Simulated scan of single mutants.
Amino acid sequence: MSNVKKRASLFIKGLVAAILVLGIGYAIYMNFFKEKEVTAIDKSDLASNFTLKNLKGEEVKLEDYRGKGVFLNFWATYCPPCEKEMPYLESAYKDYKDKDIEVLAVDVGEPRIIVNQFVSKKELSFPVLLDWNADVADSYEVNTLPVTFLINEKGEIKERISGEMTEENIRYYLKSIVPER
């Protein structure tokens, strides 16, 4: 092997080793040393307000939905249980949107173009919001997807549901947050 090839091989091995060390160091820093701004969420706590952009680039604030029941769903296009829920959620949303219920589907960490294609393909009509940096998901302590928060008309979290739901589950939970009039 020529000297040039040996140097190139050593350089590549060194580069790979440096990247591994940096990656491990970053993971340790993020998990043990970096302070996160996390608001603990518990049942009957007021839902933390947030502002996110929808697929049209318009800002949407959670507090704008005070007075309505909110089905706050954290999801992603690459998540099979999330994808399976979407048609059920769309069907139930059509029946409950006139009952002072709002569905807010918060996509976690994906670019608008991917989410927009997914929403168009699935023909979803409820608001889809983009949490590119996962800041809102972090503040709600979302670690796995899908996760749904049921928020009543007073802005209180009534339930946190982790994992895939059936259409019957979704309808049951939507019914539970219909505002009392």
Rank of each mutant, 00 (worst) to 15 (best):
V60T: 13
R66M: 00
L22Q: 12
L52D: 01
M30Y: 13
D45T: 10
G57V: 00
E83T: 15
L22S: 10
E35C: 08
M86T: 13
V38F: 10
L46A: 14
G25I: 06
E85G: 13
G67I: 01
T51K: 14
L89C: 14
P81L: 00
Y29L: 05
A40H: 15
Y96G: 03
V38P: 05
T77Q: 00
E63R: 07
Y93V: 12
D98G: 12
I41Y: 05
K94I: 10
K97R: 07
M30P: 12
A40E: 14
I28D: 11
F71T: 03
E90F: 14
L89I: 15
A92T: 13
N31D: 08
T77F: 02
D45S: 08
Y29N: 01
D42P: 01
R66T: 02
W75M: 00
E83Y: 14
K61E: 14
K97E: 05
K68P: 01
T51G: 10
L89Q: 10
V38T: 12
N31P: 10
K36R: 15
T39E: 12
K84N: 15
F50C: 08
E59R: 09
L52I: 03
L20W: 03
Y88T: 10
F71I: 09
P81H: 04
P81R: 02
I41H: 01
D95F: 14
G67Y: 06
S48R: 11
N73S: 07
A47V: 05
L22Y: 13
L55T: 01
L20R: 09
